[in-house]
């Protein structure tokens, strides 16, 4: 049962990265779209993610619930030492979710829209930045559970070059996912070209930030190179990701939507695999080499049993409905565009 739960945990992080990531990315793209084209981008984006955005963010809640029920020691350690970035993350989530709803459901369309848009786009950037920072710091060995002074315990636990570059990398990945996804959701050639261009830019940004992650890891002694290149799975995955990068640029030229989506999803999946494989099951690495392991720091047997059953039962209900939802509201899903949202 422990393995079932770990699979669910990994899958919810993965899906959150893909679906939630694309969702954040749409806001990031809007931020980097010239004033003239914003309204159009916004509209495309709303058509594409409106119906699914709330479901996309459920994956985060599932991951959190799995952590606090199944792996309380891990959840508590992170809650204590990452208090500050988690708080920023929460504020980002609040700002983004509410601004999204406000701007689409405000009965009167007036200058308030500018405020909602600004909040929405900036929080779309800040939230994944901090998600990345938190993810980076769980493995960078900066969490010091013994620290007694404030800075060491609560600030330098997450503020490092490595974490910040991971954060930037996450932001670029989100933008990239969104651009690729939105290519297929536009209805004008012009708009489509713009998303293709954005996908290229975001991809370059991801590669640049990715390189910076490696440099920061070198500087701060995070054994990232060893995690990725020190084992067959890591090498294979990173090689597959690189090859698919070339394919991706090729298909970007052609603007083939479905292939692009698969490739982008594949790349991000490979990146998540490489970065989680080597130090599995130790998902939190502490200062001084200690770690919190999924295999050791879990709840009691009966709890795991119940949690696993709840997750399995849940997925029987959720997955079909979710697929049907995503399918129904895809652009190409038949009659989908006859009706207006709301």
């Amino acid at each position: 049962m422990l393995y079932v739960i770990i699979c669910f945990l990994w899958a919810s992080i993965w899906l959150y990265l893909l679906l939630g990531g694309a969702d954040f990315g749409a806001g990031i793209l809007e931020l980097f779209t010239s004033q003239n084209n914003r309204a159009k981008t916004r509209d495309t984006m709303y058509q594409a993610i409106g119906p699914v955005w709330e479901a996309n963010h459920m994956w985060l809640i599932i991951a959190i619930v799995i952590l606090f029920v199944g792996f309380p020691a891990i959840y508590t350690t992170m809650s204590i030492n990452m208090h500050i970035p988690l708080t920023v993350l929460l504020l980002g989530i609040i700002a983004r979710g509410t601004a999204f709803a406000f701007r689409h459901y405000d009965a009167v369309v007036d200058d308030w829209q500018v405020v909602y848009n600004r909040i929405f786009t900036w929080s779309s950037l800040i939230t994944p930045l901090f998600l990345g920072i938190i993810a980076g710091s769980t493995v960078s060995g900066t969490i010091d559970t013994q620290a007694t002074n404030f800075l060491d315990a609560y600030v330098f636990s997450w503020l490092s070059w490595f974490s910040v570059t991971v954060g930037l990398f996450t932001v670029a990945i989100c933008a990239f996912l969104a651009a690729i996804y939105l290519i297929g959701e536009t209805d004008t050639e012009d708009e489509k070209r713009r998303f293709i261009q954005k996908a290229r830019t975001a991809n370059i940004a991801a590669v640049v930030f990715g390189a910076m992650v490696f440099i920061a890891a070198q500087v701060e002694n995070v054994p990232l190179v060893e995690w990725i290149f020190g084992n067959a799975v890591g090498i294979t995955a990173i090689a597959a990701a690189s090859i698919s990068l070339f394919l991706l640029w090729y298909w970007l030229q052609k603007g083939k939507t479905q292939i692009l989506r698969v490739l982008a999803g594949f790349q991000v999946t490979m990146i998540l695999i490489t970065t989680t494989y080597k130090h599995f099951p130790n998902i939190v690495i502490l200062k001084g080499g200690g770690y919190l392991s999924l295999m050791e720091h879990h709840g009691h047997q009966k709890t795991l049993q119940a949690l696993g059953m709840a997750l399995l039962l849940g997925s029987v209900f959720i997955l079909p409905a979710l697929f049907y939802l995503i399918y129904s509201f895809q652009k190409k899903g038949g009659a989908a565009h006859q009706g207006q949202p709301h």
């Binding site: 409106g50 119906p51 699914v52 709330e54 479901a55 459920m58 809640i61 599932i62 619930v65 799995i66 606090f68 029920v69 199944g70 309380p72 959840y75 709840g299 009691h300 709890t303 119940a306 949690l307 709840a310 997750l311 039962l313 849940g314 209900f317 959720i318 409905a321 979710l322 939802l325 129904s328 509201f329 009706g339 949202p341 709301h342």
Partner: peptide, 28 residues
């Protein structure tokens, strides 16, 4: 967490279904 977590883990499913159904309802 491990003791009273059961309702929360079931609740995850309930929320999820709610979010999905809401997507259908509002945009359907």
């Amino acid at each position: 967490g491990p003791i009273f977590g059961m309702p929360f883990s079931l609740e995850g499913t309930a929320f999820f279904i709610e979010a999905i159904a809401l997507g259908f309802f509002l945009y359907g």
